[in-house]
Design a protein around this nucleic acid. Structure first.
Lengths: 342, 342
DNA sequence: CTGTTAGCGCGTTCAC
DNA sequence: GTGAACGCGCTAACAG
């Protein structure tokens, strides 16, 4: 058997088209790719043959011959997080304008398969965009050492051979802390995201930094979904916190739900603030105070960095996109300012 | 220049590995694929060389030689719709168990690019899963006529050369109508989804059928997002409806938000029912009466159908997965049963 | 302008 | 067991 082609998949090749049109394969190629000028009448015959036979170029063969796939790969932890679609749309748009398509894969929050998936992507894409990578630094070093275009999104690792574009999570959390401090909050709890998440550690770093302003912080392990937030919320009471910060909006919303069930009024008894500003227009039960990144810009800039990388330009410093504070209805001054009553 | 390879991308090939290990390329291939027995000591040397050189097989070359890509492609209208991640996870899982990876693309609800994307996918995947296609029947016929494995998900078109797996939207809407009728509702409004959506027309078909049970229906153009629902909700008042049905949960939630702003109490003054049972655990402001599909099963079954199709088996009849009614807090008997008072 | 030739990197027969 | 030769489908350099 010459090939593992199953069934009677009578695949039509470029030479079939050539034969049908009475020209050589190269001429067909030229017509289809506009690579060179071709006699109009021949071109017409080629086009006819193409439609007659239903010919479609084989992507693998093209990729092999050109040394390019015309594709960029994007790896995200979790497609269920509303954060990514916005990013992806921007990425797609940039990619398309460069004549590339994008293929998306998700790790399902499982760091153990992330490495393999990146390698897969590298083997079949011109460049890869790695979003919110949960990989260990060492693995990342190995991966970025291969000279294959790769850019990190929402993960900054110093001294890496790959460009990075990220929201400024540290700055975002600082904004939140500042807001809470100005409202008079002193004791803050934090529902922590995935431990392996750099974005999470950046938030925590900011929380630590905020201590200098007289804020004390209790960190509670939680997760990244509304369900996690719902489950973890009960433990906030024990911390004595008057304000609750969270890994993201989903967690915050889940927490608020639970808090209400427990009879805790938000924001009167407890202020809650989200993170990311996920667009849940007219859907969420609470108008959350939160911080936002321009997700479109994030995706766009990352994609463009990747494009320029593929074009051979070596980009430099990591880019931080600053976040913006949105004060809404889930934060208020603490009910009793213990510092004052004492 | 022999190739469009940019920069000094010193790509390492299988022969490089062979040279380094002092064997032929074929031996390397055999070792890596376990295709035939190889002397253990040689195999060891090969493995060493592979890691030393950081060799990774070129996916295009493999695909070309094997006549297989090891990939299935999935096309969805909109990644932002929480409906799809669940489906995708199931699909990925099935694909992975068959040694295939999945690449996802989205049309962004733009039917005009859908056709091209499917063709792209067909050119670079062993099979494609087309979700909620918005394409016209004629285009679909053309596409499925090519003998390339393709299965439709959530779109049934009679007489098509491709298998299909879909939620039973008609049945789902009938369940809703039955529920509303039993509560005493007679006048129902429907916030319609995208016009080009088959899923939408199935819902409408059910609504029409429900007329036989004495239900009158007003159809209002709307859309598929919460924003659409929010915008369209104001027009419901003018219809005299006591119950509002919707294209999906997102629309319903958006509508409820608007209705509340307008001072319409749900469900006391107006019952609202969703569709899909999107998991917005602890996030949504309203506990919506809705219908659900087992999205995991949907994805799983579609993926398995695709696999068997790729294996050469020709699957038969379209499969309808039945939906389930979830009565929650957004429906109630109509405030005034006009039939009675009259 | 067009046909012919030579790879792209890999899997796989075929001889040894 | 192993290497050499061939072909997968296509593009690009080379002649004409």
């Amino acid at each position: 058997m010459r090939n593992a082609r199953q069934g009677r998949q009578t695949r039509v090749t470029i030479s079939d088209v050539g034969a049908a049109a009475g020209v050589s394969a190269s001429t067909v190629s030229r017509v289809l790719n506009g690579t060179a000028k071709v006699d109009p009448s021949l071109a017409a015959r080629v086009h006819d043959a193409v439609t007659q036979l239903g010919y479609r170029p084989n992507a693998a063969a093209q990729g092999l011959a050109r040394g390019e796939w015309g594709t960029i790969g994007v790896l995200v932890p979790n497609l269920a997080n509303p954060y990514f679609p916005d990013v992806l749309k921007a990425v797609s748009s940039v990619a398309r304008s460069h004549g590339r398509r994008v293929m998306v894969m998700e790790t399902d929050e499982d760091p153990s398969i992330e490495h393999d998936l990146v390698e897969d992507l590298m083997r079949s894409c011109d460049g890869v965009l790695l979003c919110s990578s949960r990989m260990e630094r060492a693995d990342l070093v190995v991966l970025t050492a291969r000279d294959h275009p790769l850019v990190l999104l929402d993960r900054i690792v110093p001294g890496l051979a790959a460009p990075a574009v990220s929201a400024d999570f540290f700055g975002g959390m600082m904004l939140i802390c500042g807001h809470l401090a100005q409202l008079g909050h002193r004791r803050v709890a934090y529902l922590s995201g995935p431990e392996v998440s750099w974005a999470n550690s950046e938030r925590i770093r900011a929380l630590e930094a905020a201590k200098a302003f007289g804020i004390s912080v209790t960190i509670l392990p939680c997760g990244s979904t509304s369900r996690h937030g719902y489950k973890a919320a009960a433990e906030v009471a024990g911390t004595g916190a008057t304000a609750l910060t969270t890994y993201n909006d989903l967690v915050a919303l889940g927490a608020v739900t639970r808090l209400r069930e427990l009879g805790v009024r938000v924001p009167e008894e407890l202020s809650v603030v989200g993170f990311d500003d996920i667009a849940l227009d007219h859907v969420a039960h609470t108008s959350l105070t939160t911080v936002s990144v321009p997700r479109g810009q994030l995706g766009r800039q990352a994609a463009e960095t990747l494009e320029s990388l593929m074009a051979g330009k070596h980009d430099g410093e990591p880019v931080y996109l600053s976040m913006e504070l949105h004060v809404r209805d889930s934060t208020a001054p603490p009910r009793v300012t213990r510092e004052v009553t004492r």
